[in-house]
């Protein structure tokens, strides 16, 4: 599979009554990436998934997923979406749930043997009731169903929420292993950055309904420096390029972008944590490209 953009938001806005959940959002997701969608609660992550999967239509702008406009023609055949509450029928047995998946996807490229293998690898018996599975097992059944469509793009809203650390790792490992084999592009949201470090190679950061950062994790990290230095230093850590700065006692730390390291400061490449927290604490939250209120 070559490069190419599998998901594109172009000036996308979504308004609920008077509140803009998303505003002027531009983002591109290249094929083959494992992308993290991060941001605080209420930043617009779930709205972004709703728009990408065609469950909502944007108030303004254009959404393109695998060449189709999901708001008009429904979810792209090559896309798969698991909503935050992992909507499985709790009263069904696992085999009945899988049959439902097969029937609902009869016109697509549903792959029953593949789904059975994933469920088996999750240690889930076909006769078990969905409602009696552990949260980790339920997450893996939901993931198996989503992968059963053999998607080119997998959209996962908070797939790791409410899972214990072991289950989080297992779900992420399954997801990445399947992506490694199939080349599926993944967009997943989470607000636990530790789960994403090392796993995701692309980052989309939302705050207050706007895209603050979008790009390859490696490039974003390389473009920033995490500074530590004396609080009373006359040197100004790169005015205009400071994302966030805080002073505790005699020490100042700052996240800066694309700028020289001032004398007296120690600079290291930020971790993903540093980067995300820096942008989430940025003040005042800048208003992006010329949108009239």
């Amino acid at each position: 599979m070559g490069e190419g953009v599998v998901l594109r938001f172009d000036g996308v806005g979504k308004r609920f009554r008077r509140r803009w959940a998303l505003r002027d959002c531009a983002l591109e997701l290249p094929r083959g990436r494992i992308a993290a969608l991060v941001g605080p609660n209420g930043a617009g992550k779930t709205t972004a998934f709703m728009l990408a999967s065609g469950l909502m239509r944007p108030t303004s702008g254009r959404v393109d997923v695998l060449g189709v406009d999901p708001g008009r023609s429904g979810m792209a055949a090559g896309a798969s979406f698991v909503a935050q509450d992992k909507p499985l029928y709790r009263a069904l047995r696992v085999d009945e749930m899988l049959r439902a998946g097969a029937v609902l996807n009869a016109r697509g490229r549903w792959d029953t043997p593949y789904v059975l293998r994933l469920v088996d690898e999750a240690g889930v018996g076909l006769g078990e009731r969905v409602g009696e599975l552990s949260p980790g097992q339920r997450a893996r059944v939901a993931l198996a169903l989503a992968l059963g469509r053999r998607p080119d793009l997998l959209l996962l809203d908070e797939p790791l929420a409410e899972l214990d650390p072991l289950a989080r790792k297992q779900v992420m490992a399954t997801l990445l292993a399947e992506a490694a084999e199939t080349g599926t592009t993944v967009l997943l949201s989470s607000h636990v950055i530790a789960d994403l470090e090392d796993s995701c190679d692309y980052l989309v950061l939302l705050r207050d309904g706007r895209v603050r950062l979008c790009g390859e994790v490696e490039e974003l990290l390389a473009a920033h420096r995490h500074l530590t230095g004396p609080a009373d230093s006359a040197a100004d850590p790169g005015a205009g390029h400071v994302v966030h700065r805080s002073t505790v006692g005699r020490q100042t730390t700052a996240l800066i972008r694309d700028t020289e390291v001032p004398p007296g400061f120690r600079a290291v490449t930020p971790t993903l944590d540093d980067l995300v927290l820096g942008y989430l604490q940025q003040e005042p939250a800048p208003t992006s490209t010329g949108s009239a209120a």
């Binding site: 083959g32 494992i34 790792k169 992420m172 490992a173 399954t174 990445l176 292993a177 992506a179 490694a180 084999e181 090392d198 796993s199 995701c200 190679d201």
Partner: peptide, 17 residues
């Protein structure tokens, strides 16, 4: 080990491997 093997044990991004 294949990228898939490594990824399924470590949850590291396949592109990193």
């Amino acid at each position: 080990p294949t990228a898939k093997d490594v990824v399924s044990r470590t949850a590291v991004n396949p592109n990193t491997v």
